[in-house]
Design a binder for these strands. Structure first.
Lengths: 110, 110
DNA sequence: CCGTATTTATTCTGTATAGTTGACAATATG
DNA sequence: CATATTGTCAACTATACAGAATAAATACGG
């Protein structure tokens, strides 16, 4: 895994952030992935992936204001960088190129 | 990665096999992935992934006749099992669910 | 208001799985 | 034997899982 080369879970995390726009932080990202995959998501995995993605320059983060709700620590919000968007597009294009035109794969959502 | 939970490269390998139908073996699988991703593929990685996929019961392999071409060892051909097809579909559906309706992602192939 | 329980969010630690890389083995042909 | 083609191995790094620990903020009883 020398160069870049996004892992599968990392790709899910990036896509979740894109969907959530301004409200992407640990918990919401995890929930978004659970909804899409129907599998339980361990939050530690989300945070670990976010850390790596930030080091690779694919996301940035900012600390949010203290929530007015009940209690609890400040949220850390995430956004994709331009490079992050480019990498997601590249992955999506590679995958769609591969799975387009495979007859044996019919019967899903796309 | 406890249960199943396909890695990114493993998914590429499975898709390549599906596309190649009856002619899927190490070298052709590698080339198919290179064509789709525009990145160099190390054959050792392909074989390692194939090994794992077979242990997980997602592919089966059979040895082919000795090639009539130039030289070289007998090829090992791969096919997906029913479970393999199911897992690929599930991954594809999760991904398309996530990336459908993200405006910021326009301008690719799909 | 002080201390403690509670809530929400993030970080840490250890382990298992996935993926990379380059060298090496096998097998065929000229 | 030299060379081409295919496949295996072993050592290493990176990703992901799983659950415990820590942080930061609020509410509330005394």
């Amino acid at each position: 895994m020398s160069r870049e080369a996004l892992g599968y879970f990392e790709l899910l995390v990036l896509l979740a952030i894109l969907r959530l726009e301004e409200s992407a932080y640990g918990a919401t990202i995890g929930r978004e992935i659970e909804d899409a995959t129907s599998k339980e998501v361990i939050l530690g995995s989300v945070y670990a992936a976010l850390e790596r993605l930030q080091e690779k320059g694919l996301v940035t983060s900012r600390l949010g204001e203290v929530t007015p709700e009940r209690g609890g620590r400040a949220k850390r919000y995430f956004r994709l960088t331009a490079k992050g968007v480019r990498d997601v597009r590249a992955s999506r294009d590679s995958l769609t190129t591969l799975w387009t035109g495979i007859p044996n794969l019919a019967g899903g959502r796309a």
